[in-house]
Simulated scan of single mutants.
Amino acid sequence: MSDVLTLERIEKVYNAGEPGEVSVLKGADIAIAPGEVVALVAPSGAGKSTLLHIAGLLDTPSAGRVAIGGEDVTDLGDRRRTALRRSKIGFIYQFHHLLPEFTAAENIILPQLANGAAQGTAKARAAMLLDRVGVAHRASHRPAELSGGEQQRVAFCRALANAPELLLADEPTGNLDPETSDRVFGALMDLVRETGLSALIATHNHDLAARMDRNVHLDGGMVTLKT
């Protein structure tokens, strides 16, 4: 069975050939197996967000290869990349980025409708996901009416709305206090395990990283494998 995500010799250079050239990634390699949850551990500014954006087809590498489910997607056009992101990849950011004018449930329903789901199916899946993370009772509330932890749980559900194969998360609890972070991260891990997702989760929190299957460290633009 193919790895869900493969990054091979990924390089990323900004302002290439110019006086302000910055080399962020210098040959990073990583592979995520089906059902595997991997922590990407790195301090701020090390390039983990850049690596996640390349993995999630939000950015392109200067060199190297990206494969999703064994398919080389490095040089796909914008339309195909957008379709793959919508159907196969879920992304969670440090800040929830929920649409403020819509309710918690609607924030999860809308991505499904955009992906072609029927309204009834989308509503049922939103209700199921909210229930799994313990905020079903807040389904009709808008983001401003939710606590930080509740907002991030809704963001988790939105990322899983279209039943992706791969979850990418960039410091998903980094803006929460330690107690809330621990509780919300536990909800995320429960949801990931229940759905059999593969996940690459960037964090600088070593306690959270220890709860995942494997840790990799981003250092000097390259990935160092650590168990």
Rank of each mutant, 00 (worst) to 15 (best):
199 A>L: 12
49 S>H: 09
195 T>D: 14
139 A>L: 03
108 I>H: 12
207 D>Y: 13
154 V>P: 06
147 S>N: 09
129 L>F: 00
68 I>Q: 00
102 F>D: 15
195 T>C: 09
184 V>T: 13
53 H>N: 08
16 A>H: 06
28 A>D: 13
129 L>D: 01
203 T>D: 09
223 V>S: 04
63 A>K: 09
192 V>A: 04
134 G>S: 00
4 V>G: 04
80 R>A: 12
66 V>M: 08
17 G>Q: 06
193 R>L: 02
68 I>D: 00
88 K>H: 10
25 L>Y: 09
92 I>P: 00
123 K>R: 15
143 P>S: 02
30 I>P: 11
61 P>K: 04
2 S>W: 08
115 N>D: 14
130 L>K: 01
13 V>A: 07
209 A>T: 14
121 T>H: 12
105 A>R: 01
93 Y>P: 07
223 V>F: 08
110 L>G: 11
40 L>V: 08
55 A>W: 11
166 L>Y: 04
23 S>N: 10
45 G>D: 12
193 R>N: 01
109 I>S: 11
163 A>G: 04
68 I>A: 05
84 L>M: 10
184 V>M: 03
152 Q>W: 02
100 P>H: 03
153 R>K: 06
227 T>E: 11
159 A>P: 09
179 E>Q: 15
65 R>L: 11
221 G>K: 07
62 S>E: 05
136 A>S: 01
71 E>R: 11
218 L>E: 08
117 A>W: 03
140 S>F: 12
157 C>H: 01
151 Q>Y: 10
6 T>W: 05
210 A>M: 07
126 A>I: 02
190 D>A: 13
212 M>A: 04
99 L>I: 10
163 A>C: 13
63 A>C: 09
209 A>Y: 11
175 N>R: 06
206 H>Q: 14
121 T>L: 06
173 T>S: 00
188 L>P: 00
192 V>L: 09
124 A>I: 03
151 Q>M: 10
148 G>M: 02
